[in-house]
Design a protein around this nucleic acid. Sequence first.
DNA 1: AACCTGACTTCGG
DNA 2: TCCGAAGCCAGGT
Length: 103
Amino acid sequence: MSFKQKVLELVKQIPSGRVASYGQVAAAAGSPRAARQVGWTLKSTDGDNSLPWWRVINSQGIISIKGNWTSTKQLQKDLLEEEGVEVSNDFRVNIERYRHQFK
DNA sequence: AACCTGACTTCGG
DNA sequence: TCCGAAGCCAGGT
């Protein structure tokens, strides 16, 4: 099972209304320091609708996407709010409040 | 094989 | 609370 595969499986486990940080997913996948790869992996599989990538955010509770991904940030905000997660205008979320615990 | 890049994290100032 | 620098891992050139 590749790291990428584990990441996908873990992300799919996150229930609606909950979120997890890239670091959490990386750790649960077996590589605590591979948070960046989690983001890389999600980016490379964004065509898969069965993958709730929007429930994965950084440790600050923010999506620090740069470049032409601004529309993606807005999409994520909308999706999260639709699930009941409060997202402020500057894309901040109280991750402690919605954090999903992997077992 | 070497080098670059990034949807990250942590620590110091 | 904000900003910059360093560390890390996997893929692409």
